[in-house]
């Protein structure tokens, strides 16, 4: 396969363009995703290729156009909602939770709901509290959604390609700190199955399940920790629903120690779920209590020192691993 280095956004855009070429029922809705090409360049250049019906700039009415996409998916097209910032999804939670997520079930599978919901998540750049949310635990909690949190350009392209073939509603969440990360990506279209974690680094002493931007943060401290004699295994789940617990349990069987590192909130979060499942299925493998490292449970403040204070740092990841290794 021909591969070259491109960034996360370009990789995801290639998957979208390939899918739109292959499938004429795909259309994208959002604010500024038409001729402008998206606030985050998610659709740059696509308006010229696919025209205004398939790259539809919308009024600012998230509930409205998510509801529109519900009816569109029910009648044979494949809508893509580009929320820009995922915070805006909260205006449409009723349409998502009460309608989109439930319709396959309520119709006994007679209708499919191929709706892709994408947007930028995460804290950074002084975006402040209405442009910094993650919120994925809300959607993991609801039956019916697939929740995807890619961390590399390669995964972004392969997972988005899968999402655009999937007949379920998919949340595709792009952390703003990862958008310009570059990596090798094949030119060809390819798919990465949902529910398959990526083993990012092998180790024997501590397992870290890292989500989104915590993956590169964790990988960045592994050499330092190795020099201290702590061998870290790093797992990127890539999708939170479905969640690849098998890979996590196999790793915990080897290391006996687990840290879940996640920028989003702790209470009832992904780490809580993983910890509970490891307790239920791998309790005898644990040599220490499962630890969590989360963003501070607070709205996101603006001022740089305040903003930095709510996000798990590399130092905090390293410290959490050291504490766990010392148990």
């Amino acid at each position: 396969m021909a591969a070259r280095e491109i960034n996360f956004t370009e990789a995801a855009r290639e998957a979208l363009a390939a899918a739109m070429t292959r499938d004429p029922t795909i259309f994208v809705l959002g604010e500024g995703i038409g001729i402008r090409g998206g606030n985050f360049n998610t659709t740059l250049g696509l308006f010229e290729r696919f025209g205004p019906r398939r790259l539809r700039d919308t009024p600012i009415c998230e509930r409205g156009f998510v509801g529109l996409c519900t009816g569109a998916a029910m009648t044979g097209t494949r809508p893509v909602v580009d929320f820009m910032f995922i915070d805006f999804i909260l205006d449409s939670v009723g349409e998502l939770t009460n309608q989109i997520a439930k319709i396959q079930y309520m119709t006994g599978g007679r209708l499919k709901m191929p709706v892709l919901l994408r947007g930028c998540v995460g804290i950074g750049g002084g975006a402040a509290t209405h442009h910094s949310g993650s919120y994925y635990p809300l959607f993991v909690n609801v039956p019916g959604f697939r929740v995807v949190v890619p961390t590399t350009p390669y995964d972004a392209k392969g997972l988005l390609s899968t999402a655009l073939r999937c007949d379920d509603p998919v949340l595709f969440l792009e952390h703003k700190s990862l958008l310009n990360v570059r990596g090798e990506v094949p030119e060809e279209d390819y798919q990465i199955p949902f529910g398959q974690a990526r083993l990012c680094r092998q180790g024997t002493g501590v397992t870290v399940v890292a989500i989104g931007p915590l993956v590169p943060k964790c990988l960045a401290v592994c050499d330092t920790l190795a020099a201290e004699g702590i061998s870290v295994e790093v797992i990127d789940p890539r999708t939170l629903a479905p969640l690849d617990m098998d890979t996590i349990l196999v790793s915990v069987r080897k290391t006996g120690k687990l840290l879940v590192a996640d920028e989003s909130f702790g209470p009832c979060g992904v780490g809580a779920e993983i910890a509970a499942q490891v307790m239920a299925q791998g309790f005898d493998d644990l040599a220490a209590p499962v630890r969590r490292l989360n963003g501070v449970h607070t709205p996101t403040p603006y001022s740089p020192p305040l903003e930095a204070a709510v996000v798990p740092s590399m130092d905090q990841v390293a410290a959490a691993v050291r504490d766990l290794a010392a148990e």
Binding site: G67, L68, C69, T70, G71, A73, M74, T77, P79, G94
Partner: peptide
């Protein structure tokens, strides 16, 4: 929601 969903069906049919 029915108002929005009918609008979406219209979007499908137009597309």
């Amino acid at each position: 929601p029915c108002i929005l969903q009918a609008t979406g069906a219209g979007y499908s049919f137009q597309l």
